[in-house]
């Protein structure tokens, strides 16, 4: 553009200033400070904070709760992300056939995406209510279960309730993104394959899926990363119980920090979480590079 070097520097600095300031003060500093705190016994309840070395980490890693929580988070978020990705993609395929009137369907489903988490959470509590919930009523009426299931009191069932909630809330997003990806496929490719006699399933397997796979995997990964931050449903519905079955990593860190006010210990959870992310990112990059070669 036609700005001289100096004017350009001033202008760009001005443009970046607010964001960089926000990021530096409220992301970078908290991140660095958080890592520092993980080596201390910091707590608003203690007047003096002192460095205690690796004590927090030793405490965490030798405590089976941490590993349980980690396993449960990966289970709940992994299963729900995979499930919503598959269902969202199938829905997008159905919508992408050019059938008439599918826009009504797309619009209707996409509304679910803005139902606030808190509303979805209360609603889930009512649907899966063990005495009067419609789910138990339906299951009993159709003879699938003899006794009402106590959804939120049994660990495996509570996890299932969370997974269903996460899936319900995520399917619309996955559907819209899949649809956009599908619509980005050049029609000629599919038509050429059809002329060569490839059936719908063959085209799906050898043309469509390879073309959208990377986009969808990336979106799935981003969604999973975002889901790791979500605590509304487990916090309100089960408080992470029964016996930590629905405590995700973020809920665990949150509870340590703001219920037990153990800032140091919670920071250690957060720092380990960061390390996991880093390891994961490196592996992902390596795979990406290898695929490109």
């Amino acid at each position: 553009m036609i700005l001289n070097k100096r004017a350009r520097f001033v202008f760009v600095s001005f443009l970046l200033l607010p964001s960089v300031l926000l990021v530096a003060v409220f992301i970078i500093y908290p991140l660095a400070n958080g890592v520092r705190l993980s080596f201390t016994n910091a707590s608003p309840l203690r007047p003096l904070t002192r460095y205690i070395g690796l004590e927090n980490y030793i405490k965490l890693l030798s405590d089976s709760t941490f590993w349980e929580v980690l396993y449960n988070s990966v289970l709940i978020i992994g299963v729900s992300t995979a499930l919503s990705l598959v269902v969202g993609f199938l829905l997008a395929l159905a919508l992408n056939t050019g059938l008439r009137g599918t826009w009504v369907f797309r619009t209707a489903i996409f509304q679910v995406w803005v139902v606030p988490w808190i509303a979805a959470t209360i609603l889930w509590g009512w649907l899966f209510n063990s005495e009067y919930g419609i789910i138990n009523y339906t299951l009993q009426q159709t003879g699938l279960t003899a006794e009402p299931l106590s959804w939120l009191a049994r660990p495996a069932l509570a996890q299932l309730v969370m997974i269903l909630g996460f899936v319900w809330r995520t399917i619309p997003f996955m559907m819209v993104v899949s649809l956009a990806a599908l619509q980005g496929i050049p029609q000629e490719l599919l038509e050429a394959a059809a002329i060569d006699g490839a059936s719908y399933l063959k085209r799906l397997r050898f043309v469509t899926i390879p073309l959208v796979r990377n986009v969808l995997l990336t979106v799935g990964l981003l969604q999973a990363v975002r889901m790791f931050q979500e605590i509304t449903m487990p916090w309100v519905l089960t408080q992470g119980g029964p016996v930590n079955a629905t405590t995700t990593l973020s809920l665990h860190a949150y509870k340590l920090a703001f219920q037990r006010w153990e800032f140091g210990l919670s920071s250690a959870v957060g720092t380990l979480w960061l390390v996991f992310l880093l390891v994961f990112a490196v592996i992902y990059m390596k795979l990406l590079v290898r695929e490109r070669e």
């Binding site: 400070n33 931050q229 720092t271 992310l277």
Partner: peptide
Amino acid sequence: LFFLASLAFPLPLLMISMYMM
């Protein structure tokens, strides 16, 4: 890329320092 990565940063970890600030 940093902006994108920051979405993954553990919120409870950020919140502790934000709370103190």
